[in-house]
Amino acid sequence: MSAIGPDGEPVVERVSIARALNLGLRAAMEREPKVLVMGEDIGALGGVFRVTEGLAKDFGEERVVDTPLAEAGIIGTAIGLAMRGYRPVCEIQFDGFVFPAYDQIVTQLAKMTHRSRGAMPMPVVIRIPFGGGIGAVEHHSESPEVLFAHTTGLRCVTPSNAVDAYWMIQQAIDSPDPVIFFEPKRHYWDKAELDPAAEPYPLHRSRVVRPGTDVTVVAYGPTVPLALRAADAAAEEGRSLEVVDLRTLSPLDLAPVEESVRRTGRLVVAHEAPVFLGLGAEVAARVTESCFYSLEAPVLRVGGFSVPYPAARLEDEYLPDADRLLEAVDRVLDT
């Protein structure tokens, strides 16, 4: 399967998020020889989620680097490669395994551009499968995005669908700044129709993915499909939800959210990460300030609880689902 036909023409096809990422990585690697892919098990295996499948065979082990099993080493050497003019794309196998590299990311990668007064930009992408819902063991289901979005020097984005995944990974690789690229792992196999000849949407822009009139729902990554399902259910009860896919977590792009809230007067923010000090808090604070006289109800947040991510048999109760989201919708409408 390829997005390029036998005569080199782009082919429109239905692809999964994992496949779209693979195609996006291929496109970036073909375009720019300095792009390297590095991480654990990404070579012969193609990554534990098969996102890098076939890349080692097609681009060689100089560009698709199966690294030793050491996350700080992966990010630390990626920083050095970036100093030498390379554009490393690092795969962290699971969200909970990024923390051995956290020091390198926060104290080094995020600050090197500033430290060098712009002389050493850090075009490093760190791909992190994140979020729960796959019945995994500990450390495989977490949502640490806010820890990175809070760190100046990093950009943070997350696609919610295959089309965005294809374009956003290429745009992230083109960025002169480090990009933490969160992939909604539960939805790796969700398919969408990808047209590689289409015009890509800008990386750092949010957008309305479902128009509505009664309540604005802000979501990103895995909560976007959730919000869309909730909107379907709400529609059956005659309630119209407008869903905004945030897409970019740093910088935030709240213009579409504010435009929406000025029409609906009501806002619910949903993410899998714990609500406390989550991105929803920042969205709520900003929208409250910018849309204070349009709001008909307090901004509500729906997300994970302030507990360690629970064992898999409890994750359905921990994670926000359509019922929890719709319960919040009910409350902002009842205010």
Partner: peptide, 19 residues
């Protein structure tokens, strides 16, 4: 941050190899 630069040096050297 003590020791961080040894990894940068190693990565830079990996780039030297690739060049």
């Amino acid at each position: 941050v003590i020791g961080t630069q040894t990894l940068h040096a190693t990565g830079y050297a990996m780039g030297v190899q690739r060049d």
